[in-house]
């Protein structure tokens, strides 16, 4: 048994940030392919009904589409600025940028709401009589339109919620709480005591000896930092959520021309 018991505990929560990002990217791949299935269908039906798609697209409002594109593009900018700000220790700016991002997302959804509402008011929705009186290609166009922009909208909502969660983490008082729950008590029993040791190995203070009588160890330490300090775990949370947000943007970058610009 080694003396460096503290490293054993530290290993329990390794923070491999590159690994975390690989995991996130792989998750994004699955999102790409989820939409990918719909893009495959779109491609096939477009090839099958080029004229109908063309006609149906004229019913969509290019102006709203363009505004929404700009909203998402700008929100991608603000979220990346939020990361940069956090890296530079400017928590206030970071929080501001993150909030702006969420607001842009909200703007996108409000637009979407009116756009869909308008269509539905005019009787253009899946299964409606008016839609069914259109040609087959037009019906398919609108079904794809609702399925794809609907799924995308859902992703915008999820993205906003996730960014909101990160916002909460960053905005919390910069207190670092370490919570050690030594998993294998026996490793410590009789063979360990708690101490604070400086970087050069001097023992600054001894707290307690862990003898056979100890039943459970639960150590909580919280450090209060100055404003600039941030928890690196918040940074990776922010970066990964931003990746998700960008992906939602990238998908829209393709949806926009495919539905609004093929008139």
């Amino acid at each position: 048994m080694s003396q460096h018991t503290e490293s054993v505990v530290a290993h329990k929560h390794p923070s491999d940030f590159v690994g975390a990002k690989i995991g996130m990217w792989l998750f994004l791949f699955t999102e790409v392919l989820l939409f990918g299935g719909l893009f495959l269908l779109y491609a096939v039906y477009r090839a099958k009904y080029p004229v109908d798609f063309h006609l149906a697209a004229t019913e969509l409002d290019t102006f709203i589409g363009t505004v929404n594109t700009l909203l998402l593009l700008t929100s991608s900018l603000t979220v990346v600025l939020s990361i940069e700000a956090l890296q530079r220790g400017n928590r206030k700016l970071s929080i501001g940028m993150l909030a702006t991002t969420i607001l842009f997302g909200l703007g996108f959804m409000v637009n979407k709401y009116f756009e869909w509402g308008h269509k539905i008011e005019h009787g253009l929705y899946p299964g409606s009589e008016k839609l069914l009186s259109h040609s087959q290609g037009e019906i398919t166009f609108f079904q794809l339109y609702y399925a794809m922009t609907g799924l995308h909208g859902l992703h915008v909502l999820v993205g906003m919620a996730v960014l909101g969660g990160v916002l909460y983490f960053i905005a919390r008082k910069p207190v670092n709480k370490e919570h050690m729950n030594p998993t294998i008590l026996r490793r410590f029993q009789g063979a360990a005591r708690l101490a604070v040791i400086s970087d050069n190995g001097n023992e600054l203070g001894t707290v307690a000896r862990i003898d056979e009588d100890v039943r459970n160890i639960d150590i909580r330490i919280s450090y209060e930092h100055g404003e600039k300090r941030f928890d690196p775990r918040n940074l990776i949370k922010l970066e990964n959520s931003a990746l998700y947000w960008h992906l939602v943007d990238v998908i829209w970058i393709f949806l926009f021309p495919l539905f609004y610009l093929i008139t």
Binding site: S15, D231, P232
Partner: peptide, 10 residues
């Protein structure tokens, strides 16, 4: 693995 426990290094 590189463990970035120290925020400054990170």
């Amino acid at each position: 693995q590189h463990e970035h426990h120290d925020p400054a290094a990170h």
